[in-house]
Design a protein around this nucleic acid. Structure first.
Lengths: 212, 212
DNA sequence: GGAGTAAGATAGTCAACCTATCTAATGGAG
DNA sequence: CTCCATTAGATAGGTTGACTATCTTACTCC
């Protein structure tokens, strides 16, 4: 083994190997030994960076989230923007979300706290991304801004996340349309309703602005 | 130790001890040894009944679910019926749901299947229970039955479950009201909407008919 | 009152976490 | 170009917990 990896390249190789183990074996069967073997390295190299299995799992998920940044769609209609985003989440994160949840649950039950890098909607950029979509819809006069409470803005994504967690699989496209057409849009497009306001975080992941 | 437990009494003691471990330590730190010690028994007694840790965890959760059968409320209004049921779920199952999910995820990732006794809505009676509430609301003329798709009937309970899973804690009562008043009721009480039909299971648990 | 059944004790194997200690490749300083 | 600090990578071992095997002893049922 003449070529010896170092620094960022090594770290990426370790996290990629860890993700392959995590997605193939599931959180419960995720072992340090298997990651060591798959990455072709030694225990000390792993433990120098992450002090235990929990930390490695968390870093692996965070790394994966960073690789799965989504584009913010701009299709000209709220329905298509929301559906497009849901389809992207459905396609890219259906595998990640249950693993992420298992990690959150394990970490929470062990420590009483949740790893902030996996949940902070500001850090992950989710809230800002969907707000861009909703702001455009308001500008176009498609929706009444008074209907857009935090809970309703996150509603289609909450329901998608719930669906993925309940089935451990991507949702059918018909399901996404059903959520948007029979639940979300009827709530934001017609007459008045009782308005509440409350901060409401999410943990579906980060997004970046759409290109030119 | 002159008194030696047997049969159903022993089994209940084992499952109770297992539940105390499961809720105290969390799924990831749930160990057979600790259950053996807490129940004051021996490994063979456990392994005679459940062949591994996964099976014991599953049986423990199913046992707990059986102990937490909910009454079906009958308050005279759909809003109060749904809110009452959500409050009961929130109060009794907020601790159980994340553990249950961790077990489902572990079992699914290990085997590719999900333990049917934890998910089958017919076996757990959940679907029938909520249908009673909705049937009464239709009889009273409170809602248009055409609005009551399977997804919309389960909507408030799905959102509550999502909230519990996202926070690992019971939802605030204000949150329950927000879900019912700003999302659920506006969808089932006013004008028309696109109608879909699709079976949609749940796994919040079993209920029994309300008493006289 | 005796026999079969199952509770409970004890000891051991194996896998996986994590630590300690060592060797050697690599990049940078001079 | 050479030396040195850093850290990749190898190996071996302590510890915990899953699961098995074997044995003794209480309890139940006939």
């Amino acid at each position: 083994m003449a070529e010896r990896r170092r620094g960022a390249a090594l770290e990426k190789a370790l996290l990629d190997a860890a993700w392959e183990e995590l997605s193939a074996q599931g959180y419960a069967r995720f072992t340090m030994d298997a990651v060591v073997k798959r990455a072709g390295t030694s225990p000390s190299v792993l433990y120098r960076r992450w002090s235990d299995r929990d930390e490695l799992a968390q870093a692996t998920i965070a790394h994966r989230l960073r690789e799965l940044i989504l584009d913010i769609p701009d299709t000209g209609s709220l329905r298509e923007d929301v559906l497009t985003l849901m389809r992207e989440i459905n396609a890219t994160r259906a595998e990640l979300i249950p693993t992420m949840f298992a990690q959150l649950a394990a970490h929470y039950q062990a420590t009483g706290t949740r790893p902030s890098d996996l949940t902070d909607p500001t850090a992950t950029g989710r809230k800002e991304a969907t707000d861009v979509i909703f702001d455009r819809a308001v500008e176009r006069g498609e929706v009444n801004p008074e209907h857009l409470t935090e809970r309703i803005k996150s509603l289609p994504f909450d329901l998608l996340r719930h669906e993925i967690l309940a089935t451990f699989a991507p949702a059918a496209d018909r399901t996404l349309q059903e959520i948007v057409d029979t639940i979300f849009l009827p709530l934001v497009t017609p007459g008045p309703g009782v308005i509440f306001a409350r901060p409401h975080g999410g943990w579906t992941g980060a997004m970046r602005p759409a290109g030119p």
